[in-house]
Computed example of a mutant assay.
Amino acid sequence: MKLLVAIVVILAVGGNTLDIIPITEWAGSEINRKQELANPVNMVVIQHTASKDCYSDKLCLQTVNNIRGYVMKIGFDDIPYSFMVGGNGKVYEGAGWHRVGAHTKGYNDKAIGIGFIGTFVEKLPSPEALKAAQELIEYGVQNNHIAGDYKLFGHRQLSSTVSPGDALQKEIEGWPHWAKN
């Protein structure tokens, strides 16, 4: 079995630890998306993957690979999200900071799309996942990938969808930078 190596990013503010697993590690290949994403972006879009939840490294790895395989089978170039966050508190790179994803039609070239792994209509992601997403956004701001005055949206605010689910939408409405409109 291939050893999965995580890149650990230490955040300067608060000394938090954020595990970001590069796509080359979890998928074994580079992202197929080639269009450059101009940084910093002014928007962050929170979504859910509408898949099964995952809480262990093994299950999250299997889930993100299943999502990648499925979306490519139905015609996407590659994983649509910039990043995916597992219930294990780890972040899985998709299109990342520097490539345009396919997460929110009309906003892909203006936003980072963060997909929580699972379906969050009636329940919230794990506390570890919520913390990891917030640390990811903070890291993005600190490293000029996300503008300091960014706006945070739930996917449903920009597209006709239930994503990120009722429970997760209500949660992010209390996060810094959430934009009503």
Results as ranks from 00 to 15, higher is better:
62 Q>W: 10
30 E>H: 14
80 P>K: 02
46 I>H: 14
75 G>P: 09
35 Q>T: 11
32 N>Y: 03
54 C>Q: 09
24 T>S: 14
33 R>L: 09
28 G>V: 14
33 R>F: 02
57 D>I: 13
90 K>C: 01
13 V>T: 13
44 V>E: 04
63 T>V: 08
40 P>I: 04
94 G>Q: 03
36 E>K: 15
62 Q>K: 14
92 Y>H: 04
31 I>N: 04
14 G>W: 00
84 M>Y: 00
75 G>F: 04
89 G>C: 06
41 V>R: 05
81 Y>C: 07
55 Y>K: 15
52 K>I: 10
21 I>D: 03
30 E>N: 15
30 E>A: 14
35 Q>M: 09
95 A>H: 09
76 F>R: 13
21 I>F: 00
61 L>S: 06
21 I>V: 13
24 T>K: 10
93 E>H: 09
33 R>S: 00
53 D>V: 08
23 I>D: 06
58 K>E: 15
39 N>I: 13
96 G>T: 10
90 K>R: 15
83 F>M: 10
30 E>L: 11
86 G>P: 07
70 Y>V: 08
11 L>H: 02
32 N>G: 11
65 N>L: 02
43 M>L: 12
50 A>P: 02
92 Y>E: 03
21 I>R: 04
17 T>K: 15
77 D>F: 05
75 G>K: 00
52 K>P: 09
55 Y>H: 14
81 Y>N: 12
19 D>V: 12
12 A>R: 15
78 D>H: 02
34 K>F: 00
17 T>A: 13
24 T>W: 07
44 V>P: 01
27 A>N: 06
72 M>N: 01
73 K>M: 06
52 K>F: 09
89 G>T: 08
12 A>L: 13
72 M>A: 11
75 G>W: 01
14 G>H: 06
57 D>H: 09
32 N>E: 06
14 G>K: 05
52 K>T: 12
26 W>D: 07
28 G>W: 14
46 I>G: 11
39 N>C: 14
41 V>H: 05
66 N>A: 12
61 L>R: 05
29 S>D: 14
44 V>N: 07
18 L>A: 04
58 K>N: 13
64 V>L: 10
97 W>Y: 10
35 Q>H: 04
93 E>F: 03
79 I>M: 12
30 E>F: 10
63 T>C: 01
12 A>D: 15
82 S>A: 12
79 I>G: 02
74 I>W: 05
57 D>F: 10
59 L>N: 14
82 S>D: 13
19 D>C: 11
28 G>Y: 11
54 C>W: 01
56 S>W: 00
16 N>L: 12
90 K>V: 07
47 Q>A: 13
61 L>F: 04
46 I>Q: 15
72 M>C: 14
96 G>S: 09
94 G>C: 03
59 L>E: 15
27 A>E: 02
65 N>T: 05
26 W>V: 03
19 D>L: 11
65 N>Y: 05
